[in-house]
Nucleic acid binder design. Structure first.
Lengths: 240, 240
DNA sequence: CGAGTACTTGACTGTGGTCAAAGCCAGTGG
DNA sequence: CCACTGGCTTTGACCACAGTCAAGTACTCG
């Protein structure tokens, strides 16, 4: 069923009982589709539900004057794109579909009932928001300190690990329907410079990127350039 | 008592009953002091408690090769510096005291009891971690898209608002015991460039910075340069 | 086959980095 | 009381990574 990828992600970090999985499924009110480029959540709009991404890719982004924007996170199948709206009630950023997206709607009222009856499941949901924050921190590091080639290498390392976890990447290959402009908006670079840097990665035999997707040709090399350390993804279960 | 500033912050966002305040106080195990420059929490170290900053200034930072580091957040009196370790159990970053610090220790076991008995208080704690994440996102925007003068102007706007909320700033003045090197580590700039940019802000009559602290001379001007919008601090209570 | 979007390339520019040295205090000790 | 020390700030000269502007190419879709 459609929860599989969410459960895969949660179970990578902690136990989820059958009862809990059912309780979570019961909090789903309905499903929806959005076309690419659709703004799913608007900054500051009062929210009464959270959105689970079941198919497609979304981004969180913040606008700045003159059409500039910064993407602060990418979301893939199985991510809650705005679980934090359960506590915040409105968001400081927009959420946009970068591809066609299929999502599930979880009313805050039902989540609130869950939090009153299922403390362990509540901690798991809380955990997914704190993992989001860990990704934000790693992106701060990239944006503040890494140069162009390191930023882009790091982004691809992160995406591979995340996609692989939910079964959407294997053998160092994954589909990549995003444009170079989007990579620039994630990394704080211009499209032109993203293009040149991708050329460099290609020239150095590290990866190939075409419309069919990304093929990482030299994973250790990419990891070395990016100083990639997957700690921040919290992919191992911690003793509890 | 020492919780005042934490309560002030929580109450800026939602009701906190007397019972809840007492329950929270009951979760405090002991207090501690740290000298300036002391690393309070080490990356990847297993954690069994969370730390409330009661006095002083701390930063969260991530290391990169060759002594480079990026500060991903600043914390002031009344902030939990690592409440997210309650769900994560180890952190992807370090926490360091930037000044002499006095902190309170909250064992995860006691927090867990709280989360099992106090759903509303649990949501409040969850909320403070999601507000942390909102600050991370705003810093991503600064790091990715703002230029030097905008970055530094934005940092001072943010600090003023946060310090003012807990009574540590007023009349556009606040104590500022941090060095220009630290400002650089927050904004992704070098110390040299921070110094030049501060000179520019001073020259344009926007603020004064000396060892006694910061005086903002032109708040609207600073806000305009930074495109500062305090939405992301979530300082108003949302309807619930 | 034409239009539109994304990608690619080149020439030039500029913001911010690097390297180096000097100035300024506050604290310490003779 | 003054010289010394060490951290922090300030300034200057030069450099480079990434941005800007502009044109051209390659796909995809209608």
């Amino acid at each position: 069923m459609m929860f599989d990828r969410l459960l895969t992600k949660l179970r990578a970090r902690d136990e989820v009982s059958v009862t809990e999985a059912q309780a979570l499924a019961g909090a789903l009110e309905r499903e929806r589709d959005y076309p690419a480029q659709h703004v799913i959540i608007h900054e500051n709009e009062p929210l009464t539900f959270s959105t689970l991404l079941m198919e497609g890719i979304c981004c969180r982004y913040k606008d700045l004057g003159e059409g500039q924007r910064q993407i602060t996170a990418l979301h893939i199948h199985g991510d809650f794109v705005d679980l934090h709206s359960f506590t915040l009630k409105r968001l400081d950023h927009n959420v946009m579909a970068l591809t066609r997206c299929h999502v599930g709607i979880f009313p805050h009222s039902r989540l609130q009932t869950l939090t009153e009856q299922q403390p362990h499941l509540t901690r798991l949901l809380w955990l997914s928001t704190t993992i989001d924050a860990a990704l934000h921190r790693e992106w701060e590091l990239s944006l503040g300190r890494r140069n162009a080639i390191e930023k882009i290498a790091h982004l691809f390392c992160e995406l591979y690990m995340r996609l692989e976890l939910v079964g959407l990447a294997e053998d160092l290959r994954f589909g990549f329907p995003l444009t170079q402009a989007v990579i620039g908006e994630c990394t704080g670079l211009t499209t032109v410079h993203v293009n040149r840097t991708l050329g460099q990665l290609r020239g150095d035999g590290l990866l190939r990127l075409d419309r069919r997707g990304v093929t990482i040709l030299d994973w250790p090399g990419l990891v070395r350039i990016a100083e990639f350390n997957p700690n921040y993804l919290y992919l191992t279960r911690e003793p509890r």
